[in-house]
Amino acid sequence: MRWIWFDRFVEFESGKRAVAVKNVTLAEDHLHDHFPGYPIMPHSLMIEGMAQTAGILVGEARGFSEKVILAKVKRAEFFTLVRPGDTIRYQATVDGEVTASGASTTGRIFVGEEPVGEVDLVFSHIDKNMSGLEFPEENFVFTGEFQALLKTYRQQGGAKVAL
């Protein structure tokens, strides 16, 4: 559950659009390896950050009842580097609507006003798409731990937290 690559939702419009922020800090171990003496936020982890932002947007649309998995990175393009002290904004929009099978999303990443990258994704509701294969009953994507974290955020975040 520590693998969460954003800190907070600042905008959330159910089934349509979400904006999450992530503060990048030198206290994060990975920045010391990527790269030694030249800390920059890995683009791969920004794809993960967008996948989580968009994935929760897709999951929330059906009350977190579906197992939403990232099926495909349609496109990932980055224009610049992100460094410690920066605040990343992940803006995710559902293309059309969340359907029974899943959703396609368009993502834009910014630091301040500067465009950092574009990450377009496809999410699958696996129980609906991999018929014939058995998956565990419990929702291993949106786990109890995730739901508990969400509840705490909602109760204590007040006006700052959009979800």
Binding site: K72, D95, G96, S101, G102, V122, K128
Partner: peptide
């Protein structure tokens, strides 16, 4: 898994719904 992507793209391009 590409079929899911293709279906979403076709729905958008042609303005139709494609039940799986």
């Amino acid at each position: 898994i590409d079929f899911l992507d293709i279906v979403f793209r076709l729905e958008k391009t042609f303005g139709i719904k494609i039940p799986q």
